[in-house]
Design a protein around this nucleic acid. Structure first.
Length: 183
DNA sequence: TGCACGATGAAC
DNA sequence: TTCATCGTGCAC
């Protein structure tokens, strides 16, 4: 297991999103080492992407998205659930990748099929917003001996308000994996 | 200062 | 299919 370097995140968001599939999300807290394999993500390309929070410009909530790559953007949605994103490209761009589903690998007791469930199972909340993903307790790693994977591309979820952006195939998941949120 | 509305999940 | 529940962004 090898931690992804900053330069992994400092690339085109479409590339980062697709290469995040199959990687391991690691969160060490409460004496546990929670690990899940990323099986489903969505790409949010930047200020021009009407489905992206950053399309409203730099605000108090979205300033993490406009920060440097390799940091976690965690926010509360519907007043109930947390969503975990990974900031990509360069500072000021406002792009990120939403993690939507994991396959449990270690110390995961709850379901992980969906962005809210994923955060609950991994003990992720707003306190981890703007947390460095090159830290020792919260990071993403390349699994040992990982093989090439088959990806499926679909439209993003819950973004019908975003006009033509709602139709774009910016959601990626592992083909035939039972842990994706909407097989 | 007030208010409409989500990158959702679970119950009904 | 409906509802819970609240931070955010923007209108006033």
């Amino acid at each position: 297991m090898r931690k992804l370097p900053r330069r992994f995140y400092a690339r085109d968001t479409l590339i980062v999103a697709q290469e995040l599939i199959g990687k391991l999300l690691v969160h060490r807290s409460d004496g546990l080492e929670r690990i899940g394999k990323i099986v489903e993500v969505e790409a949010y390309l930047g200020e021009h992407d009407l489905a992206s929070h950053s399309s409203k410009g730099l605000t108090e909530r979205t300033k993490t998205m406009f920060g440097p790559p390799g940091y976690a953007y965690v926010y509360l949605i519907y007043g109930v659930h947390h969503c975990m994103n990974v900031v990509t490209e360069h500072a000021g761009h406002g792009s990120a990748v939403l993690l939507r589903a994991l396959e449990p690998v270690k110390d995961i007791a709850a379901r992980t099929q969906g962005p809210g469930l994923l955060c609950r199972a991994m003990a992720i909340d707003r306190r981890l917003n703007a947390h460095d993903l090159l830290s020792e307790e919260f990071f993403i790693a390349e699994p040992d001996g990982s093989a090439p994977v088959a990806l499926v591309k679909r439209p993003r979820i819950g973004v019908d308000y975003a006009k033509h952006w709602a139709k774009r195939l910016l959601r990626f998941n592992l083909k035939d994996n039972p842990f994706v949120s909407q097989p």
